[in-house]
C-alpha cells in the first residue's frame, strides 16, 4: 500500500516533468503558479504521509511544535513566488529541476510532517498569514506598471494577480465558513496520523 502510493507520487512527478506537460504548464503564469507549483507541493505532502512512520526520531524531536518545518514551508513558498525565480525556472532547465526537487522535498515533505505537530493556534496563525500574503502578492501583480516576469505577458500577469486574489478570498471565506458552522473533519479530531486529513483539518481552524 505504502509502496504503491510512493510509486504513484514518483510517477506523477515524472509525468509533470515530461517536456510537453512541463512546457504547457509553464507557458502560462496562472497554470505555473496556481497548478504546477501546488501539485508539486502536494506530491511532497503525499510522500510525507506515506513515509511518516520512518521519520527519524531526532527529526521528530527537533521539529518542536512543527516550527522549523513550517518555517521551511513559508520560506520555500516565498522563494518560488519571486518573479525572478519563476523566470529562471522557465528559461533554464537546471533551475526548473531545482524547483521540481525543492518544492516536493523542502516544502511538501516538511508541510506533511510538521503540520500535525502544530497546535491549533499555530495552524490558524499560519492560515492567517498565508491568506493576506497571497492577496497582497496578487495585488502587487495587478499594480505593477510593467511585466515582472520576462517570460509572461502583461495580461497573463494580470490574470495571475486576480487568480491569487480570488484564491485568497475563497480560502478566507471557506475558513470563516468552516469555523462558523463548526465544521471540523472527523479525521482531524481523532487522529490526523492515519489519514491525509490534516490539510482539510487546517480549514477548521482547530
Amino acid at each position: 500500500m505504502n509502496a504503491r502510493l510512493l510509486a504513484a507520487a514518483t510517477g506523477s512527478w515524472l509525468v509533470l516533468w515530461l517536456p510537453p506537460i512541463r512546457h504547457t504548464l509553464e507557458s502560462d503564469m496562472v497554470l505555473h503558479m496556481a497548478v504546477q507549483v501546488p501539485l508539486l507541493i502536494m506530491l511532497g505532502v503525499l510522500v510525507a504521509v506515506v513515509a511518516r512512520d520512518r521519520e527519524p526520531r531526532w527529526l521528530a524531536d527537533a521539529d518542536w511544535l512543527g516550527i522549523p518545518g513550517i518555517v521551511a514551508v513559508v520560506l520555500g513558498t516565498s522563494f518560488w513566488m519571486l518573479p525572478r525565480a519563476l523566470d529562471q525556472a522557465v528559461s533554464d532547465p537546471w533551475a526548473d529541476l531545482i524547483k521540481f526537487l525543492s518544492l516536493p522535498l523542502l516544502v511538501g515533505v516538511p508541510l506533511g510532517l510538521s503540520w500535525r505537530r502544530m497546535p491549533p493556534l499555530g495552524r490558524a496563525f499560519i492560515w492567517a498569514n498565508f491568506i493576506p500574503k497571497l492577496g497582497a502578492i496578487g495585488g502587487l501583480y495587478l499594480g505593477a506598471p510593467t511585466r515582472l516576469c520576462a517570460y509572461y505577458r502583461l495580461d497573463q500577469q494580470e490574470l495571475a494577480g486576480w487568480t491569487l486574489i480570488a484564491i485568497a478570498v475563497a480560502l478566507g471565506m471557506t475558513w470563516f465558513f468552516a469555523a462558523f458552522v463548526g465544521w471540523t473533519p472527523s479525521c482531524a479530531k481523532q487522529s490526523p496520523r492515519r489519514s491525509g486529513g490534516f490539510l482539510i483539518a487546517a480549514v477548521g481552524g482547530n
Binding site: 531526532w58 527529526l59 524531536d61 527537533a62 521539529d63 518542536w64 511544535l65 516550527i67 522549523p68 518545518g69 518555517v71 521551511a72 520560506l75 520555500g76 522563494f79
Partner: peptide, 16 residues
C-alpha cells in the same frame, strides 16, 4: 522541545 530544536530552526532559517 529538545536541544535539536534551536539547531534545526537556526539551520532552516539561515539556509532559507
Amino acid at each position: 522541545m529538545t536541544r535539536g530544536f534551536p539547531v534545526l530552526l537556526a539551520f532552516v532559517l539561515s539556509i532559507g
